[in-house]
Design a protein around this nucleic acid. Sequence first.
DNA 1: TAGGTTCTTGACCATGGAGTCAACTTTTCT
DNA 2: AGAAAAGTTGACTCCATGGTCAAGAACCTA
Lengths: 193, 193
Amino acid sequence: MTGPDQPRRADARRNVEGIRRAALDVFRSSGLTTPLDEVARAAGVSKGTIYHRFGSRRGLIDAVVDELVAERIQGIIAVVGELGDPLARFEEYLLRMWLLQYDEPAANDVLIRALPESEPLLNLCEKAQEFAFGLLRAAQEAGVIRTDLTPDDVNYLILERGAIVRACGQQSRDDYRRRLRFLLDGLRQGRQI
Amino acid sequence: MTGPDQPRRADARRNVEGIRRAALDVFRSSGLTTPLDEVARAAGVSKGTIYHRFGSRRGLIDAVVDELVAERIQGIIAVVGELGDPLARFEEYLLRMWLLQYDEPAANDVLIRALPESEPLLNLCEKAQEFAFGLLRAAQEAGVIRTDLTPDDVNYLILERGAIVRACGQQSRDDYRRRLRFLLDGLRQGRQI
DNA sequence: TAGGTTCTTGACCATGGAGTCAACTTTTCT
DNA sequence: AGAAAAGTTGACTCCATGGTCAAGAACCTA
């Protein structure tokens, strides 16, 4: 987790950095399951180097996932934390998570656990989850979100989006967002059945 | 499309039927992308026989998809056609399609087009689509479904489910169904914003 | 700049699935 | 029964991907 496992030689340090950058690029545009050969090509090194430096695909992911996703999730928690209204908090959280999932396909690999477990990631997911559960409870107590929506449901609402984005990625961001509104509306309290 | 391309020898006819049955079984439980070796094993023949008889994976799928999915979709259209209320028609159609997607993973491969295009299937999908669009229009004209829901949106609502089922298949049918209710509620007209 | 050390390479192994085909087996017809 | 036609087999090729490692290249230090 900390620092001084840097390689000794200058070329090696250069390579590590290059691989990190390339991985960010490639993962961002094609998800965390992209063949490592592609990352290698983008970084101008051989696949062997990646394995030598990062041990495995998972090692590489661990090395970039923070910059790729973790910071964004923390950002969402921070921004939503500033809001006052319970409904706005709940909806804004979901909306921002869903948009993150659209903007960063890699986020889905993380949330959906399509990849080897990584401790920091699990922690992050749990933290986000707890945060979401808090928002849900508050919104339900304020009477603005339907009470038959469970924490599990909220989890699913987010996981689902991941699957959707991967499978129906061709939809425009605007359409995607517009459809999210339908979803949110279905979660509110006080509808005429 | 028609009939008399049956093999001449009795053993061959027997095999064709056995492969069809095995394919139905295997595709039903593991989706249309299951390795053909598995189908072959289940049918007690060699993979070569499948290729010889059906030409390709796609040929095999074409040969079983009717029994697997097409009839069910036609059934849904028929049942929903009997209903009177526009809202009930629209919601029942979506609900039944969504449940079909849960019950038959293979339906998702069809709807999501994860497989080589097949004419009869394309026709079926289009027919179902037209039917759904009609239901939508009627429901909107009756003022029971929100007017900012487009036919494209309806398509997505169905395609999405396919992706979801594949990715989050572990949820129980009851939970799955309960969550569909949230979704439907978000599509109704006349909510308090 | 020599020589030891650190790094990188790319050929190599393994896995798993799609699809093919020459050799073999079974059925059918007379 | 015997031979020709029809059918089946499974080993084979091809391709993609994950991952390894001995040999050679690049770097750093004295």
